[in-house]
Design a protein around this nucleic acid. Structure first.
Lengths: 358, 358
DNA sequence: GTGAAAGCGCTAACAA
DNA sequence: TTGTTAGCGCTTTCAC
């Protein structure tokens, strides 16, 4: 009886040790791949492990190693207090999370993060921070040691989360430079260069009456793409560029295109600051009887799945989101963990992808 | 010195207890909201908590409670050994994860799950299982106690994961009935009823030469939607219904529409088994000079964001994905945990959403 | 109503 | 190279 009184719960190190006739420490060494263990014993232990069906208890391990083998992947929203409380019936553009996933962009971030994490036995815990209460939850979660750090994607300017994280001395990496400087690592894209590529392509194609649908101007990326586009045109002798501001959604892209068309019915080329808005622009152009690209050429930004889904397929500026996301994870985990080490940033270069729309 | 030698790491229960002048046990009781604690003492403890900035260590707690306060949200892919290894450069339709997120459907699942989990202080850990190695990882993860159960969404028929989970006696709930019966809880939609709604709408609209773009026929949902559509038409005197099989992607919807159009140039109504394929169908129809809905009416399925993004906006069959996902979580966590309790299934009713495409 | 003490399962010194 | 031992921080009987 005394022998298998443990038979109840899951097998523990102790069980394996007994089965293999060695100490817990030795089993632990084998499992963690520590050297200095007799090959013969290693084999015995491995046998015992598979016989008992042992799986190490992660909580126990975390307790002593002080690592969670998990990272928080947080999508951080408005700085304002929406306190919207979610609600099940999300028609569309409804709850924050629904909105987030409407852009194929976020899926690519997940892809990149998972690809980096998985080979390392780590996993992302999904968190959405919209209200200040949510943000406290994220900070609390990390302080509890539930995750080894945070990967944060802000959807709005002036997001307070990066500041809170930095203040609490928690490990974190941002996707994109924060609107206001915060001492945190981040990865970003050379947005201006991307916009320049778009402008040059449109110009080379012969377009002369260009306009742009910008992203939100309080977001650094939105502003940079506009600046890059405008400056390039200016350098080529186009002093004035009509702008309609969008919010990176297809719907806002449609509205912006309507405005642009109303004020400049003769335009022959449009640069939209992301693919979703470019798709919306294409819809509106077609509804107004303009052919894309014959009458009006359209260039998008991101090279997300929306670019391929669009009719015609979008010529766009590729943002290597997956690689950027993987780099975020690397920055978070590979760092010399010194809280004193200066904030690093890694900037990626965009690339023009020519398809049918321009 | 002896007094604050703990100042190093994060504050522990011990620290709070000392600051409050009570025992660890009492602090623990207050924190966990256990009754039988003097209100005055509760207050003192709360003070001490905020003074010390205490946050309970989750690993330590999990170790004793045997709960992780996390669930695995797993997207499970092919039964076949792809061993594709991911790879950073996901052009599109590339890596498994990228493909998953290309359908707005999955984002809605996340939304529903998070909405349910969050108020309960729990979080979803994202996992993707494509190869058998991945599946073992998922099983191992749960066996380690890293999550309290799994919420699984299979993208392919014959996915072995549900079986593995059931076999290992792990808590799990599926989205959609498994292709082959497995003793596991699941939530699902009355697909046939949904397809019936689509058929009746098309018929009521006056369409007489109908066709359908089905989902993969080895997936129960794909088959059920086809059956429901076909049977309804048959009941209304339409003995034969042309079918083109798709794979639930926009691209496959385009290809299917091309085939349908080639063989039945006179069709006046199409039911696509999801919105992505319906969108693809609209593109192809337009390219062939057919107006939607004047020449050909199109009905989709899901009511995902793709339905609204489409031009014209899709008339579609709404699948309450968020509510279904929340129900999955509820089933997983609210159950009397008896491994002997019989498998439950909750079936949701679809609803027709009429927009412009039909 | 409160405290003392016994672990939960594991890793990491330190001995041997 | 291997075993012994001391915790990691928390919850939870069990006395008081």
């Amino acid at each position: 009886m005394t022998d298998d009184r443990r038979s109840a719960g899951a097998p523990t190190l102790e069980d394996v040790a007994r089965a293999a006739g060695v100490s817990r420490a030795t089993v632990s060494r084998v499992i963690n791949g520590v050297r200095n263990v007799d090959p013969a014993i290693q084999e015995v232990v491995r046998q015992a492990v598979s016989v008992t069906g042992y799986a190490p208890n992660r909580a126990a391990r975390s307790l002593v190693t002080r690592r969670a083998d998990a990272v928080a992947l947080v999508v951080s929203g408005a700085g304002v207090e929406a306190e919207s409380g979610a609600g099940a019936a999300a028609g569309d553009g409804g709850s924050f999370t629904a909105q987030v996933f409407a852009d194929p962009f976020f899926g690519r971030v997940v892809t990149g993060v998972v690809d980096y994490l998985r080979p390392r036995g780590m996993h992302p815990v999904l968190m959405f921070a919209e209200t200040s209460r949510d943000r406290d939850e994220v900070v609390g979660y990390l302080r509890q040691g539930s995750a080894d750090g945070a990967l944060v994607v802000s959807t709005h300017a002036g997001d307070p989360l990066p500041g809170l994280l930095a203040e609490a001395g928690l490990a974190a990496v941002l996707f994109a430079r924060p609107a206001r400087p915060v001492p945190i690592n981040y990865v970003d894209l050379a947005h201006q260069d991307g916009a320049r590529l778009a402008a040059e392509h449109l110009l080379a194609r012969g377009c002369r009456r260009l306009a742009t649908i910008s992203g939100p101007l309080d977001v650094p990326a939105g502003r940079a793409r506009l600046t890059g586009f405008r400056d390039t045109l200016a350098r080529h002798g186009h002093a004035y560029t009509p702008v309609a501001e969008g919010r990176f959604t297809q719907e806002s892209g449609e509205a912006a295109m309507e405005r642009l068309l109303a004020e400049h019915p003769d335009l022959d080329g449009v640069f939209a600051a992301n693919d979703l808005m470019a798709t919306g622009a294409c819809h509106v152009l077609r509804e107004h009887g303009r052919r894309v690209p014959e009458d009006v050429a359209v260039v998008g930004f991101d090279d997300s799945s929306a670019a391929l889904a669009c009719r015609p397929p979008l010529t766009t500026v590729r943002q290597p989101v997956e690689a950027m996301a993987a780099e975020m994870a690397r920055l978070l985990l590979d760092r010399p963990t010194g809280p004193s080490s200066p904030a690093t940033s890694v900037i990626f270069e965009p690339e023009l992808v020519v398809r049918a729309s321009a």
